[in-house]
Amino acid sequence: MPSSDIHVSAVVVRNSRGEVLCVRKKGTALFQFPGGKLEFAESSLDAVIREVNEELGISLDAALLVPMGTYRAVAANEAGSDVVADLFYFSDSVEPVAAAEIAECEWVNPSVPNVKLAPLLKDEVFPELIANPVRSVAVFTGASSGRNHTNAFLADALGAGLAEQGVRMIYGGGKVGLMGAAADACLANGGCVIGVIPQNLVDGEIAHPGLSHLEIVDTMYQRKQRMSDLVDAYVCLPGGAGTLDELFNAWTAQQLGLHRKPIALFGSSFWAPTVSMLKHMADEGFIRQDDVDTLIVADTVDELLVALNSWAAPCPKWN
């Protein structure tokens, strides 16, 4: 029986390749998550923000940290004790710099770790990440509602379903059209919704006023890049030229191996002509059929999440 519990707060930081940031402290052999022990009267959230800033030079935004829950495992460095860790999830591009107690940092593939891991990572958290890797999704969709009322039902169902499954929604930050409908449904069901919107659209008064968090950027390019940084997967609802731009930008990057994240088309009836055209382009030799096959097509949130979490990344085009 462990003689005592060691309470810590830590963060699971994941990059676009699906790798997780791990650190090894000076004088120890096993890698663990960034974080540490709480100071007096300090919350778990405040503790992990402080620790990561002190030890890695990374400023975490509290609004972007997703609570994962509390995990218990045998302590890696203190014999006879268990570590009890409050974990947060953070999907973003960061550049850690080892400082204070940290001897080295390493990006680790949870499925094929290349370093020695603490029991918390090896036995508890990494198996969960492998089984359910998708915790934040980018939702691409129209700033109008279109003529088919079925599309509004799809937006409502997606937003509500993501909230019910505890999956964070990242989208373009607007209050109008299907994008606003999906955000409203997610918020109404207790979900977390983060918007990323260019300043000119804020000036045009279409920014959603009730989001969990709203980031304002300068350009549409920055919007797409920031959304990509924050998510584990992409889901496309019906939309127009902007939605197609976002879809093909993410899909091309996937083909080139710039990220290893699944892409889904939600609403098979709407997307059928697009899929048909892509198959035609594959037949004509302009697209690999394997890349067309990587696109997920789903009509329900349950079907969608099962497919997203079981998806395997294709071999990059130029590999």
Rank of each mutant, 00 (worst) to 15 (best):
G159L: 08
S9P: 07
V176T: 09
A253D: 10
L244M: 10
S269W: 10
Y71E: 10
V94W: 07
P314A: 01
A155L: 00
V196H: 05
I49D: 03
E215P: 11
D229F: 07
A185I: 07
V231R: 06
G191A: 09
P127I: 03
S212A: 11
G146H: 03
A298K: 02
Q165Y: 12
S9V: 02
S111C: 13
V23S: 04
L247C: 05
R17A: 14
A313G: 11
K279C: 07
Q255E: 10
E95Q: 15
V176G: 04
F88L: 09
A143N: 10
M169F: 06
C22E: 03
S81V: 05
K224V: 07
L158N: 02
L214V: 11
W318S: 06
D290M: 08
V84L: 06
K25C: 14
A253V: 11
V231K: 05
L201S: 01
S59K: 15
W318M: 09
K122N: 08
T274A: 14
V108R: 13
V137G: 04
A79G: 05
V301D: 03
R50G: 08
V83K: 05
F40L: 14
D156P: 03
L162R: 02
S310E: 14
F266E: 00
W251A: 01
R288V: 02
E303K: 04
S4I: 00
S310L: 12
V137E: 05
D92W: 12
A99E: 12
L56R: 10
G177M: 00
L129A: 04
E39D: 15
A10R: 09
I102Q: 11
S136Y: 10
N15S: 09
D92P: 01
V11F: 04
L247N: 01
P238D: 00
N132P: 02
V112P: 02
R50I: 04
N151Y: 14
G166Q: 06
L158G: 02
R260K: 14
A63I: 10
T300S: 15
G172P: 06
L278P: 01
E284W: 03
S4N: 07
H259V: 11
